[in-house]
Structures are given as structure tokens and as C-alpha cells.
């Protein structure tokens, strides 16, 4: 039991299960899944489907955070990739043509990758702080997306494209398979090659990694490229869901949800050892939380208040100072124990 509790995924999973439990108790329909035309429907299925864009973005964010970085531009990148893809489809005039769709999807992904490479260049090569470097694209990205859509919200009508976000395969939403595939691919690349451990090494101790001959620059660059590519795909999913490229609304605040998902999953913002499984749990937690808030009758627009509460709670729990403070409070209530003053300084 103790070993289970000490596992790094213990608390994230407990939080997710608790959230599901609360929902189930307050509305038993939450866990009910109905079958209609061979497709599954229900709140849980919705969560699986709707979480796909966030899942992709959060996976990329996990890699970036593991290198001690952050990527604020993911929402803007989503806007760009969606705009590129939909504009190509719209301009082609043949929205059902598979080769047009293939080109559009390919171009959207390439746009995302290019954005990621750009971020990586600023950070890994020029040495600009990640927050600022990605802020540049966060600012300019939506403008670029608007340029691509010529200032309008591009809408298309293409059933195959719609399938990405809204279609079903073997009873489950296609978007869920996209999530699964992304998780699997990222996990394989990180854990079946040496990328994962080298990324962690760079995130924990950049200087020691350099001395051990690790190519930090390439690894950091790669993390941002991956984040851009995944955000690009998320942008396609988003545009497929609403069948429109809305440069202003696409992926709005998703960078914050993604960061939150990563942190909820137990990966520290200070970089280093990361947990993809934790991020997956974190994404489902956030999506469930959003669904809960909606169910409680709170207008979706007020969701940020709850998110603020969660952010504060999570960062406070991560803050050693807060834990010490709580510990002291607890100590005062129980038996007073004379604790030796801890010295952090080292003799020299």
C-alpha cells in the first residue's frame, strides 16, 4: 500500500477518481454510456473526445517543460495551422477531394512544425528566455493566422475533414484514437530511444549534461519542434470540430490548460524528470473538471475562476514554503517537538 501511495501517479489519479466520483454521486447519468447506431455516447465519451486537442498540446508541453522551458505559443500555433489547412481547402473549391485534404493537413502540420522550429531556434541557439521567445509567436501568431484567413473566419463544408474531430471508429470517437496515437508515438520516441533520459538530464542539470557530452541544443530545439507539431495537429482537430478557422478563438488559453495539465500530472515546472502518463491523467482531470463546472450550471465563461482556484492550489502544494508553513501550523496543534534548525548553507 505504501509503495502505491509513494508512486508519483498516486495523487494525480486520486484527484481524477475523486472528481469522477463526485460527478457520479451528484448525477448518476455521468457514468452511463449509451449505444446508438453502434456508437457510444455519454459524458465520459465526450471527455475522451473533447480532450484530444488539449492532449496533443499537453504532450508537447511536457517535453518542453522537461527541458526547463515553457511554450506559450501553442494556442497561436493552433490558430495558424487551422487557418492554413482550412484556407487551402476553401481555396481549392473541392472540399471532398482526398488529395486536397491530404495537402491541407500536411501543410497545417508543417506550419505547426515551422512555428516550433522557430521557437526552438530563439531559445536553443540565441539563448532567449523561453517565456519571452514564445511570447513573440504568441503575439504574432494570431495575426499571421488572420492574414492567412484574410481577416475572416474561414468556414468549410467537408465531411471527410469533419470526421477528424466528430467521426466515430468502432464505436469510439476518432479524435480519441488521435489522442491515443499521439500518446503512443511520443511515449515510444521518448522511451524507446534515448531522447527521454537525455531530455531529463538536460532539464535537471544542463552543465553536467554538457560535460557528459549531451547535445543539449539539439534536444531543446527538438522539444519545441515537437510541441509546435503537436499544437499544429491540435489546431487541425479544433478547426475540424467547428469546421471553421477562427484565428481569435482557436486554442485560446490552451497554453494555460496544458501547463496546468502537466503540473497536475506531477511534472515539475522546474524541469527534469517528466511523466507522460501523469500528463494524460492531468488532461483528463482538467477536461472532467470543465465538464463538472458545466454540469453545475456555471456558465462556461466562469470556468476561469475554478481554474484559478486549481492553479493556486496546485502551485501552493508544490511550494515547499507553503508545505513548511502548513507543517508548522500542524506542529503547533499537535505535540511541540523541538526540531533542529535546518541549515542549507554548506561549509567551504
Amino acid at each position: 500500500m505504501n509503495a502505491v501511495m509513494k508512486h508519483r501517479l498516486f495523487w494525480p489519479v486520486v484527484v481524477l477518481l475523486a472528481l469522477i466520483l463526485v460527478n457520479t454521486l451528484s448525477r448518476p447519468s455521468f457514468v452511463s454510456i449509451t449505444v446508438q447506431d453502434g456508437r457510444l455516447y455519454g459524458s465520459l465519451i465526450d471527455i475522451l473526445r473533447n480532450s484530444a486537442p488539449l492532449m496533443l498540446v499537453a504532450l508537447g508541453m511536457t517535453l518542453v517543460i522537461a527541458t526547463r522551458g515553457i511554450d506559450l505559443s501553442v494556442g497561436a500555433v493552433m490558430a495558424v495551422s487551422g487557418a492554413v489547412a482550412l484556407q487551402i481547402i476553401q481555396d481549392s473549391g473541392d472540399a471532398a477531394n482526398p488529395s486536397v485534404l491530404a495537402v491541407a493537413i500536411g501543410a497545417g502540420l508543417l506550419a505547426g512544425l515551422a512555428c516550433g522550429l522557430w521557437n526552438g531556434f530563439l531559445i536553443a541557439v540565441l539563448g532567449i528566455q523561453p517565456i519571452i521567445a514564445t511570447l513573440v509567436l504568441m503575439l504574432a501568431g494570431r495575426g499571421i493566422a488572420l492574414l492567412i484567413t484574410r481577416g475572416f473566419i474561414t468556414t468549410i463544408n467537408s465531411d471527410p475533414y469533419k470526421f477528424m474531430a466528430q467521426g466515430y471508429v468502432v464505436g469510439l470517437p476518432f479524435a480519441f484514437y488521435v489522442s491515443l496515437a499521439a500518446i503512443a508515438i511520443v511515449a515510444v520516441i521518448e522511451r524507446r530511444t534515448a531522447l527521454g533520459v537525455l531530455t531529463e538530464a538536460v532539464g535537471i542539470n544542463p552543465e553536467a549534461s554538457r560535460l557528459a557530452g549531451v547535445r543539449a541544443r539539439g534536444i531543446i530545439w527538438g522539444a519545441y519542434a515537437a510541441s509546435g507539431l503537436l499544437a499544429g495537429f491540435a489546431g487541425l482537430l479544433y478547426s475540424s470540430n467547428i469546421m471553421a478557422a477562427d484565428a481569435n478563438a482557436a486554442g485560446l488559453y490552451i497554453e494555460l490548460d496544458a501547463i496546468l495539465a502537466v503540473v497536475l500530472g506531477g511534472t515539475s515546472l522546474a524541469g527534469g524528470t517528466f511523466s507522460l502518463a501523469g500528463t494524460v491523467v492531468g488532461v483528463f482531470t482538467i477536461q472532467t473538471l470543465k465538464s463538472t463546472i458545466t454540469f453545475l450550471g456555471v456558465p462556461p465563461a466562469v470556468t476561469p475562476v475554478f481554474m484559478a482556484a486549481v492553479v493556486v492550489l496546485v502551485v501552493l502544494i508544490q511550494s515547499s514554503r507553503f508545505r513548511r508553513w502548513v507543517g508548522r501550523l500542524g506542529g503547533r496543534l499537535s505535540v511541540r517537538s523541538a526540531q533542529p534548525v535546518e541549515r542549507t548553507e554548506v561549509a567551504s
Partner: peptide
């Protein structure tokens, strides 16, 4: 500060440089 990657395991630390030489 310039040698070990503290949070990584003994195994990962031992194989780090060799792995870095072999490439990702």
C-alpha cells in the same frame, strides 16, 4: 553541479555519456 544528474538513477547516470556518444 558539474558531474552527476542527481535525480536520475545510478543506471542512467552510468550510461549517460555512452548514450550521448551513440546519439539519441
Amino acid at each position: 553541479t558539474e558531474g552527476l544528474i542527481g535525480e536520475l538513477s545510478v543506471l542512467e547516470n552510468i550510461t549517460l555519456a555512452l548514450q550521448a556518444q551513440r546519439g539519441v
